[in-house]
Simulated scan of single mutants.
Amino acid sequence: MTNLYIAQGEDAVGRSEDMVITTILGSCISICLWDPVAGVGGMNHLLLPEMHQAGSLSTSGAVAMDRLINRMMPLGAVRPRLRGKLFGGSSMLQGRTDIGARNAAFGQAYLKTEGIPCDAENVGGTRARKLRFFPATGVAQLKFVEEAPRLKTPKVMPSNDVELF
C-alpha cells in the first residue's frame, strides 16, 4: 500500500488501487474529489482559504481547488463527473476566533458554487480528525483524535519597577 501524507497547503492525486492519501485535520479542512468513471481522486489540506491581505480578499482556497482539479484531469478525470467529500473545520482553540467554522463554510460554498455534489461531510466539533482517502475508489475513512485542550487565561503576575530593554 502506497501511503502519501499531505500537510497544510498540500494536495495529492492518484488512481492506483493501492494508494491512500492521509492527513490530520484540526481547524483545517480537506476536500476529497473523485471521478467514479475514471477511478481518479485527490485530496487537499486547506487552512484559511480566504485571507484578507492589504485590503483585498485572497481566494487561496479557490486556487488550491483549481490546482487539485487540474492535477486530476491528466489522469482521466472529467469535471462534470466529480463528486466531493468535506472534512475538518474543528474549533480547536476554545474562546478564540472560530477559524474551523470559516474553513468549513468555504468548503461547503465552493462545492455548491461549482456544482460538485457533496456525498459526505463531517465538519465542526472540537476534536481533530485523522483522514484516509483512497483516490481510486473514492472511499474516505475518518477517525477522531483526542478533544482539543481548552486554553486557560494566563495569570497576571505582579509587576515591579524593573524595566527590560
Rank of each mutant, 00 (worst) to 15 (best):
Q8W: 08
G9Y: 00
E10I: 07
E10C: 07
D11M: 14
A12G: 09
A12T: 05
A12Y: 05
V13G: 02
G14L: 03
E17C: 10
D18Y: 08
D18Q: 11
M19C: 11
M19A: 10
V20K: 05
T23E: 04
T23S: 07
T23C: 08
L25V: 06
G26K: 04
G26D: 06
C28P: 01
C28F: 05
C28D: 05
I29E: 03
S30L: 06
I31M: 08
L33I: 00
W34F: 13
W34N: 08
W34S: 07
W34E: 03
D35K: 06
P36C: 06
P36F: 09
V37W: 11
V37H: 14
V37I: 15
A38I: 05
A38E: 00
A38C: 08
G39A: 08
G39I: 08
V40N: 01
V40E: 00
G42R: 01
G42W: 02
M43P: 04
M43V: 04
M43N: 04
N44Y: 01
N44M: 04
N44L: 06
H45E: 00
L46P: 01
L46E: 03
L47D: 13
L48R: 13
L48A: 11
L48T: 09
P49Q: 06
P49W: 04
P49K: 04
E50C: 09
E50N: 11
H52C: 12
H52T: 13
A54R: 14
A54S: 15
G55H: 08
S56C: 12
L57E: 12
S58V: 12
S58I: 10
T59Q: 14
T59K: 14
T59I: 10
S60M: 13
S60W: 08
S60C: 15
G61F: 02
V63G: 01
A64K: 02
D66R: 14
R67T: 10
L68T: 04
L68H: 03
I69K: 00
I69G: 03
I69S: 03
N70Y: 10
N70T: 13
R71Q: 08
R71W: 05
R71V: 04
R71K: 12
M72L: 09
M72D: 00
M72K: 03
M73G: 09
P74L: 03
P74S: 00
L75I: 07
L75C: 06
L75N: 05
G76V: 05
G76P: 02
G76L: 00
G76I: 00
G76N: 04
A77H: 03
V78G: 10
V78A: 14
V78C: 14
R79Q: 12
R79C: 07
R79G: 06
